[in-house]
Amino acid sequence: MAVVTDPVISTVKLSKVYRSGIGMRLVSALVDVTFDVGRGEIFGFLGPNGAGKTSLIKILIGLARPTAGNALVFGRQARDAQVKARVGFLPESPYFYEYLTATEFLRLSAGLAGVPGSEVAGRVNSLLKLVRMEASAGVQMRGFSRGMLQRIGIAQALVGDPELVILDEPMGGLDPVGRKEFRDIIVGLRDQGKTVFFSTHILADVEMICDRVGIIINGRMVNIGGLGDILSDDVQAYEVTVTGLTGKFRKVLERVGDSAIRSGDALLVTVPDDAGVDRVMAIVREAGARVQAIVPRKRTLEDHFMAHVGGKRGA
């Protein structure tokens, strides 16, 4: 694991056990979770539903206490009010005060975050603009869609100009355009020197914007590191697209690859290694056909994630 200098979040052997259900059975939500998040990073916290993501986040924002271990934010206990003043938080599927308008809610959030009175109006307006909610600023939030609530949610998280932003499933309920805008906002926060810690079960979001990723499964951090470290550069397979094949050669090629997909005139053949590519090229030359593309397929985060989840789930 890479050593993080100047950590913003630092946990040591963090465990959380709670009682649940009939008979108050003990459930371990977190087991010996140790990791650091450095200043200015976008840290993606990845795990399937029920893996312990929200339990960890609740400890990091001081809503819950760890059963064992320690969680430090800016070098102090997470429950410390001085720490909270430097942290912005967006809960999962946020539900806000539906009787308030978006503007009233952001003003309330600014008041609680300790924003000076003279700066509140300007801050609220610029945030409404950032999340594209100016048009609904004066509307009570009871009529808001999930995506609109999510937008107001990120605005309230940023209202105190926090150094660390913790987002629990921030992309939930957003359409593709909204997700793109959210990714831009998150990258923009890093560009301002802020640290972003966000949980998700959507791999594409993590792959696109995170500097480092932690994978949590059944309460244990099973992998943590830069995306490059987690996803080795080893090529898993090659995808060769061939056009201009006649019937006979097409059948031969289909047998050479691990799999073959026809699409109009083109045939996409997947072969496991260089030797496979050579065999395909030889047949193409013989057939007088043409190679349109050779794409090496690397291990994706999804492959990696599935390998872990497949192995650990229900274990």
């Binding site: 809503l63 009010a81 909270k84 938080f89 809960p91 946020p94």
Partner: peptide
């Protein structure tokens, strides 16, 4: 119940 407490207590509110 409505979980609005999360955003309240995540703030520097004692």
């Amino acid at each position: 119940e409505k979980r609005t407490i999360y955003i309240m207590l995540a703030r520097p509110v004692r």
